[in-house]
Design a protein around this nucleic acid. Structure first.
Length: 218
DNA sequence: CCGACGATAGTT
DNA sequence: ACTATCGTCGGT
């Protein structure tokens, strides 16, 4: 049953060479694409609405800290999943063209189409309950943050870091093109005393569900 | 072993 | 502006 759906759905997967270009291009092109996760035989779907491009030579990037086993995925072929844990949550990245360059998936919105499991939303809410444990998160805000998105999809470092996308976790092209993309050159990720320029891309029509910009632009 | 520190998220 | 939260890293 689910296998049949997965076999059909996998045909919509973006090709690996999608990631074999400049990470800013990849970050922009990922907006509107849909993350698919087979979570215990239910397909969870989230449309990407916000990304950030991280270059190896930016001191704000993990790759700039150099190669370690932990960060090896950043130096693996384009399309390799890099996950890390920080601030009590997992984050999802994908390596791009050039050693150390990658894109961070920053936020998304729950996506429903004929492939999404009918109980997908209930499962995502269960995976990502409110901090105080009372009630449930608003569906629209389930994935409005890099760690919230991973939580809602059950994506973790041990399960996916340094792995390739496969039939249980991949990104679909849903033939959607953002009307308008905000590219926010963002100053202010603190790294010691320095400030660094980051490229943040947001699908403007879903701006309200992107992460609030906490860093001031000078 | 221990303390500091996040590519955060939510509350005051 | 403040802080819960926890894996990673670097210093003893």
């Amino acid at each position: 049953m689910i296998e049949v759906i997965l076999n059909t759905l996998i045909k919509t997967q973006i090709p690996t060479d999608f990631f074999a270009r400049d990470c800013s291009e990849v970050a922009k092109a990922l907006l509107g694409k849909v993350i698919r996760v087979n979570y215990r035989m239910t397909i969870l779907s989230v449309q990407i609405i916000e990304t950030e491009a991280y270059y190896v030579n930016e001191k704000a990037s993990h790759a700039s800290l150099g190669y370690t086993k932990k960060r090896r995925a950043l130096f693996m072929p384009p399309g390799t999943i890099y996950m890390y844990y920080s601030r009590a949550g997992d984050s999802l990245n994908v390596s791009c063209l050039g050693d150390g360059n990658a894109v961070l998936i920053k936020s998304g919105i729950v996506y429903q189409d004929r492939y999404s499991g009918h109980d997908a939303i209930a499962i995502m809410q269960q995976l990502n309950p409110p901090r105080n444990g009372i009630g449930h998160r608003e569906v629209k805000k389930l994935c409005s943050g890099q760690t919230l998105l991973c939580r809602s999809l059950g994506l973790t470092v041990p399960a996916w870091d340094a792995r390739q996308f496969n039939k249980n976790f991949f990104i679909s092209d849903v033939d959607y093109v953002p009307d308008k993309i905000s590219c926010t050159p963002r100053l202010g990720i603190p790294c010691g005393r320095d400030e660094h320029l980051l490229l943040r891309f947001v699908d403007h029509s879903h701006y309200q569900y992107a992460t609030p910009s906490r860093w001031k632009i000078k």
